[in-house]
Amino acid sequence: MDWFLANLPFVLELSGHHLYQSVLPLVLGLLISVPLGYLAWRMPMVRGVILSASSVLYTIPSLALFVILPVILGTRILDPANLIVALTVYAVALLVRSVVDALESIDDGVRQAAVAMGYRPLRRFFAVDLPLAVPVLFAGLRVVSVSNISLASVGALIGIRNLGVLFTDGLLRHFLTEIVVGIVMTLVLALLMDFVLVGMEHLLTPWNRHRKAGRKQRTATSGPGNHGSGDSAGTARRPDAAETAVLHESL
């Protein structure tokens, strides 16, 4: 704790770098994945190619990618841009599938209605498809946000300044406290980002809140009814299973 307090400015500076290095790729990854995912969703021909390519991308070892990128991009080996590009690649690899799943989660009747009312495809995408894709899309974003924050630490191995420095430095000096601080701060960042993403989703989907509330109400009212009916346990259980199925669908 003493070490942490004494080095607070240093730790905070590293945390700031770390946050920047993981959030920027998340945003870039999203911007790249949405059009790619849209293409994959609209054109079944391209779909297989895009989805398998993104899976392959994710299997590239991170360290290898950090080393190869300067050669491809022509950047200096210590440039944080290498890390940002690498993390963006991973973000895209994961998010493309999320975008496709999210677009597929939209009720076909709603889409038909939008077409029938005279939306042109581009406007429909931004006004109808994308807003309705938010819940599933954000589930993907949350996974990528955590994965980015943990992967970013690896950048320290190639000399990039972020919380990973606390791991490399602590290992070299056999100084456990520093490593623990690194772990805790990484966790704090991950939780913070998750909190921010949940909050954003909440703000973007006021319509979904009401829907969830309605569902909870229904579950609550069906509960006592089952107990009061005096039926055997077997029949009383069945509606619960149905409710669970409904909840799964909404996820």
């Binding site: 009747g109 709603v110 009312m117 005279g118 309705l132 989907t205």
Partner: peptide, 17 residues
């Protein structure tokens, strides 16, 4: 053409958001 006609669908097809 579609905007010049009203369209009502089965289960309303309202935009949930």
């Amino acid at each position: 053409l579609r905007r010049s006609m009203g369209y009502v669908l089965q289960s309303s097809g309202l935009l949930p958001h």
